[in-house]
Computed example of a mutant assay.
Amino acid sequence: MNDDVRNIVLGLVATGISASLGWLARTYLWRRKLRRKQAFFGLPENSESLLVVNRDPATAEPAVHRFDVFALLELSALIKDCGANLQMVTQDATHQGFGERTEFCVGGPASNRRMLAHMAAMLPGIRVNIDPEPGPDRGAFQIGGERYRMEPGFTEYVLLARLSTGGQTRPVFLFCGQRAITNQAATRYLARNHERLHRKHGNNSFVILLKVVNSQAYGPDLVELVADVTRAAQTPLPKPEPAQP
């Protein structure tokens, strides 16, 4: 074998080794990223998850608002990315506890009784005005001592929460918006920012308040983080003082 042939062979071998090492490194990084995502969502491969669907409060018949359908599609993609399975149930057909499998619950307490139960059990510091009568406080959030009113189409709020009782239990994700479009905004925010949320909160519980800006023009895409309200949400609100006779 002359020098030219030997150099060609050595070059091919070096190229093959470099390509193999690059492929192994990319595979390792991809698997590590996937494991972190699975841990954050509580969705190991082939695990089961639950999607709880609300109803459209604007209709008399059982129906799901189209923006909530879009939110469910966003969540379905996240679940499939983790290699997990999903079961979709309506808010009035869920008669089970939480923690055995990851749950994604979509819709405010006025349209989702499962959300109402979760908030009463785990978020005693939040009160949502579910009065159907028109008024400035319709759909408003009270979080601790702060009140957040919506201006439909201009300024609307949504709560995004990851709640867990600790140990080996699976988390519950809540998407509690003042309007259906804000539910979709929260699911999209989670899909885009789950890595940052994982870095900040790990696998611990958190509750954040998001503001959806000018949804009539920008849809669910323009979202601002208002505050981390975890502590206020988990601290019971003071009981109202009895009316004076």
Rank of each mutant, 00 (worst) to 15 (best):
G22T: 13
C105Q: 05
M150N: 10
R35M: 13
A93Y: 00
E146I: 05
L222S: 11
C105N: 13
S76V: 07
P62V: 06
T90R: 13
T235D: 03
L43V: 05
I143S: 12
P236F: 07
L29Q: 12
K37L: 10
V213Q: 08
S164K: 06
T59S: 12
S76M: 12
R6W: 05
G144F: 02
Q216E: 08
G42A: 09
G167T: 10
I130V: 15
L73D: 15
L174R: 04
G145T: 14
G166E: 04
T235C: 04
A121Q: 12
G202E: 02
A71H: 02
A39I: 10
R138C: 06
F104N: 03
I8R: 15
E151A: 11
T102H: 04
V89M: 12
V64E: 08
R36S: 13
N85L: 14
G99R: 03
P124F: 05
T155Q: 11
A84S: 11
Q234H: 09
L86D: 04
E100I: 05
R6I: 13
H198V: 01
S111I: 01
M122E: 05
E61C: 03
P152K: 02
V226W: 12
I130C: 15
T182W: 02
V158H: 01
K200I: 09
L159E: 04
E151W: 02
R36G: 09
F154H: 08
A180T: 09
A186I: 05
S18D: 11
R26V: 10
A110V: 14
N203T: 15
L159R: 01
L237K: 07
F67H: 12
R35V: 07
R66C: 05
V226M: 14
L78G: 03
N2A: 06
F206P: 08
I130T: 15
E241Y: 00
T230L: 06
A117G: 02
Q178G: 01
G42P: 12
A71C: 10
A77P: 00
T90S: 12
R179Q: 11
A63R: 12
N7M: 13
S18A: 15
P109S: 14
G145R: 13
I126P: 09
Q91Y: 04
V13F: 11
R101F: 05
E156Y: 01
L237I: 07
A180C: 10
N2Q: 06
Y218T: 08
I181E: 04
Y218C: 04
K239G: 00
